[in-house]
Amino acid sequence: MKIEQIRNATLRIQYAGKHFLVDPFLGDKGSYPPFPNSARQDQNNPLSELPIPKEQLVEGIDALIITHLHLDHYDEAAKEFLPKHLPVFSQNEEDAQVLRNDGFTNVTVLGEDTSFEGISLIKTQGEHGRGEILKMAGLVCGVVFQHEDEKTLYVAGDTVWYAGVKEEIDLHQPEVIVLNAGDNQFLEGGSLVMGKEDVLQTHKAAPQATLIASHMEAVNHWALSREDLKQFAAEQGFSNQLHIPQDGEAFEF
């Protein structure tokens, strides 16, 4: 298994001999206005360039996984650029229909027993915030990768820590967990994804697992920096279990 942090929640994952691109956010730096009612209104999104050219990013990709359709997970650049013949996995039929309308010809809705080339892709639950903000944030999912020749991987997606994440950990016993951990927020409504305390709770639920912090410092409404998370993990004694990659950095397991 090889996991490469691209930018924001965009990952390139090599698993059991297949290559997946997760949540493609492919626009040039500053292509989109800042998310409203949030920090850094003077900075357009994304805040950084892709670490590698789009053409290189999609070389050898076997399938796409799009956990939900928010701009910073699937943007106009991705819609226009990605080859439409690639298999795409989405969270529900509503998202699948949007992707089909965008021209993708092979779209599958993730379920509890989805399979791709012998790899199990299991949809997991998530909550994109807490309380009233959930009505605006909408539905999201994560995905568990399983194969007899690989460690179990859990890509949690845009979720905060809550009972559902613990249920997925208890059920699947992942050895590697990717968390969207930028603590992204609007001025009202609280966190939309995991902050440092959520990451700590995930570690406590899966103390033997390796955690990878993604979705950091890439869009204007981030609230937790890589450096602050690194310091917090050291203070709490789990820094050896946590990787906080820079864009373009990869890890093999």
Rank of each mutant, 00 (worst) to 15 (best):
L229M: 14
Q185F: 00
N44W: 12
K166T: 10
V144Y: 01
T159M: 04
E197D: 13
L86A: 07
I61P: 00
E117L: 09
I169C: 06
K84C: 06
E4L: 12
L82R: 01
A63L: 04
P83G: 08
T114H: 02
Y74R: 09
L99E: 05
S120K: 15
A234P: 02
E4A: 09
G17Q: 08
H203E: 05
F20P: 01
N101Y: 01
P87A: 10
E117I: 08
G190K: 02
D72Q: 09
K79M: 11
T108G: 00
H85E: 14
A16P: 08
E168D: 14
T124P: 08
D170W: 01
L242I: 12
E93R: 02
G118Q: 09
I244M: 08
I244P: 04
L57N: 02
V98M: 07
K123M: 08
R40A: 10
E148H: 13
S120M: 12
A213Y: 04
N92D: 11
Q43I: 04
L134F: 01
A250G: 10
A205D: 03
E49G: 09
K196E: 12
T159H: 07
E227F: 04
F104E: 03
G111V: 07
S38A: 15
L110M: 09
E76P: 00
L192H: 01
M194R: 07
Q231I: 14
T10W: 06
G138P: 06
G138D: 05
D75M: 02
F104R: 01
Y154A: 03
A223H: 12
L69K: 11
N92C: 06
H70E: 12
T108S: 10
M216D: 06
E217N: 08
E188W: 01
R12D: 04
A209F: 02
H221R: 11
H221T: 09
L11A: 06
S225D: 04
D23E: 07
D228R: 14
T114P: 02
G17T: 09
P51V: 11
G111C: 07
H19K: 15
A206Q: 05
Q125V: 14
E252N: 12
E217Q: 15
V22S: 01
Q236K: 15
H68S: 08
A234L: 13
T114F: 02
P36K: 04
I212Q: 03
R130Q: 14
V22P: 00
N37R: 12
D228V: 03
N8F: 04
I133S: 08
H147D: 11
I3S: 03
Q231S: 13
E175Y: 00
L187K: 09
T67I: 05
A78S: 15
N106K: 13
N240M: 05
L179T: 13
R226E: 03
